[in-house]
Amino acid sequence: MSRSIKKGPFVDPKLLQKVKEMQKSGQKKVIKSYRRSSTITPEFVGLTFTVHNGNKFIPIYVHEGMVGHKLGEFAPTRIFRGHPGLKSEASTG
């Protein structure tokens, strides 16, 4: 079930405050966050976040195409390393 339109998208207030402060000051520091469920708003564009994936902080540079998605979508919690027992493949060419 999708989120009510009346409520609007969820954006973590503390995170949004940090983003606004960053935009005001014009600094481009990396913002560390655990808020995977926070929606990316247009204010986030051009900033870099490190979002926790349960193990470590994953760097995410936000561009226009990411607006409307959640931060957690870009910090995968599992990394596929290939099926066991298969030979590793070189990628080149």
């Binding site: 994953i58 995410i60 540079y61 936000v62 990411m66 870009f74 995968p76």
Partner: peptide, 21 residues
Amino acid sequence: EGFAQDIWVIEGKPEIWIPVL
């Protein structure tokens, strides 16, 4: 793989992850 951009992983404890931008 699901990341926002390519990432270089640098050795160490903990590893350092730098986005390729």
